[in-house]
Design a binder for these strands. Structure first.
Lengths: 123, 123, 123, 123
DNA sequence: GTGGTCTAGACCACC
DNA sequence: GTGGTCTAGACCACA
């Protein structure tokens, strides 16, 4: 896995895991890799993997059974999507709209780009 | 001026200056405040102001006449808006569209939120 | 290490590092000292070392792995020598030739001085 | 006149004046422009022109008659050329030779570039 | 441990 | 007056 520089690595890993959950690759109540395994898989320091798990645990997306490992929480999938939607509507969208205002970009142009984008991502 | 914590101050100042340029508050070839003035105005250390000017000079948005001060570069306005548009279409928009796909948000919903946003930002 | 006054210290450190790279003392993809180590080694403030690393990173001679340190970039050696050759042929040499013209110094005299110089620098 | 950023402007002006002297455009014992005139001609602050004159006076290339103006010194032409020769042989040349050593540039290559240079500068 | 940012204050050359 | 460099020391997020 490759990492950007605009986000902390541990956050990018969290996104990656959330993706696994949303797509049901990792199902609810299922055990997920140990910090060491995850670290080895993604070529990061186990501490960084640990940080991701702490982060996700604080958000109640995963939970920990002591001495056993980490597990996907109940309703995690639904919860993650909800968080993502909130982020989308409360953070991303306003920022985009603000940019459109200051750059004088009409809504129609958005629509054009959306059509193009869709065509490229549907096969 | 107030600063967030999600971006370095010197970047936020750079954004602030770009805004001045885009709105023609500071015109091309016009002298802009000295590092000391800017620092005093925005209540930051002159070094931080200096850092902003270095940053903007590297991007060819401002330039320096030795012993005299910094000046808005030729075509700076056009250049800045172009950079902003590129960032919008190449970075922000694809991210939004990707999120829409994975969250199953139809384009119509976008339109609704846009209407609401516009109503709030028009007098 | 001792520093001149005709160049900023951070540039002189950059030259010093480029020298390490060109002579393969520091090899490609190899980790280089942390800003604190380098500062301690060369008896300069870590900030100054940091300034050098920023400078070299902008020139793509070194790169950064977050939280880990700075590394010599791929092809850095080749790249640095190329930069030096360009500077030599495009900047230094024309200046020398121009001076020779205006001072009426024949090419033969250059050759003499070269012989003397070589004798002094060969063991 | 246009100025580089790698030398102080007042030095560049001094070079410009020395050139006038060497080429006998400004002859010995001849009055040269006042600081105000020179400043206006070259579009620089009179203070900067003044600095140049101070600099050249310290090197005994020009001298001052109070209330009248600045004059090219006796034997200035000869003296300037001598200074330039010294700079050439003591400063520039060793630097070039050093660069040749570290870049593995053989003397023959120098000769080639010299031929090219000469062809371009002779009509 | 790492880099990165910021402040405070100093000194310098230059215009 | 201007920018530019440097130091000292602090704090922070990140790996």
């Amino acid at each position: 896995m490759e990492f950007n520089n605009d986000k902390p690595i541990y956050i990018q890993i969290a996104d990656y895991i959330c993706d696994k959950i949303v797509t049901s690759t990792w199902k609810e109540e299922e055990r997920i890799p140990s910090v060491r395994e995850l670290g080895a898989d993604l070529q990061v320091n186990p501490n960084t993997a640990m940080r991701t798990y702490e982060y996700l645990q604080n958000k109640h997306i995963i939970y920990n059974k002591r001495g056993i490992g980490y597990f996907v929480a109940e309703n995690a999938m639904q919860y993650v999507t909800q968080l993502q939607r909130e982020d989308f509507f409360d953070q991303q969208l306003p920022r985009v709209f603000k940019a459109m205002l200051s750059l004088n970009i009409p809504f129609e142009e958005l629509q054009n780009h959306y059509s193009i984008f869709i065509n490229q991502h549907v096969e």
